[in-house]
Amino acid sequence: MSGYLTGVLVTLSFNIIAAYAVYLPIAAGQLNLGIAGFMAIGAYAAAFLTNEMSWPIWAAVLVSAGLAGSVGLMIGLPVLRTHGIYLAMATFALGQVISAVFLNLEVVGGAAGYPVAAYAPPNIVFAAAAGVVGFMLLLSTTRFALYLTAVKSDPTVADLLGVSVRGIQAAAFTLGAMVAGFGGALYAHHYSFIEAQHFNVMLSVFPVLYVLFGGTQTVLGPLVGALFFTLAPEWLRASAEWRYALFALFIILFMAARPQGLVTMSLFRLFGRRKPQVTT
């Protein structure tokens, strides 16, 4: 595999993980605009564990993902009392605060950044992304996915049916934070260097775009969105400096024409019908 191709696929893997971190709360009807903060927690925690405590990478990554999830749960419970645009603002601020904390934390390098000694090769990154996709596919077959849809489409009726709405929302938010932390932890060990400035607003916003573009109705939407946003700019590379302008124009037109995203349930029904429906 060429270095270029490997580089693109590694970026793709991290984008897929980030997309699912954003997708989980969106599937419960909540927008987390601070996903970069949870990636930062995972990245710094894992780097600290391998650098200073000599932990093996896999253990550091898993524990850091758990840590990011715990922080997500602790912060999520109060933050999830807000809804809609207020929740978006609260999580947005949260992401900024977390990255500001690491910017000033001297024990992990502060503004100078933090080199990471242990290295995770591309194959590990690919496997991790595949693992996240597999986990999400598995999750989509469980009752939890049904509750997510119920909470997202009608929280009032979900409550009346006895679904614990806040419980499901907190669980989705926590799982999303965990996936973000997992991605961040791997990122630190693949690129061997992290700095607080990397975990900025754009890192939080782009995955949201992948998910909205791919579609929030099905579990495959985020995957398709991440694929498109990672690979399409590469294909457009030939048209040089105009590629981003054309790309942006295309996104605007696409979202205007198809606000529900690319992959929807009706699309599945169109192509994946198992048996003919009786329509009398």
Partner: peptide, 26 residues
């Protein structure tokens, strides 16, 4: 205790069977 809410409040983004399954979720 169950409540059939006013206006039915069926989850239209789920299938008929998924709606029924949701009723049995406990």
């Amino acid at each position: 205790i169950v409540l059939v809410p006013e206006g039915r409040r069926i989850l239209i983004s789920l299938t008929v069977e998924e709606n029924l399954r949701l009723g049995a979720h406990l």
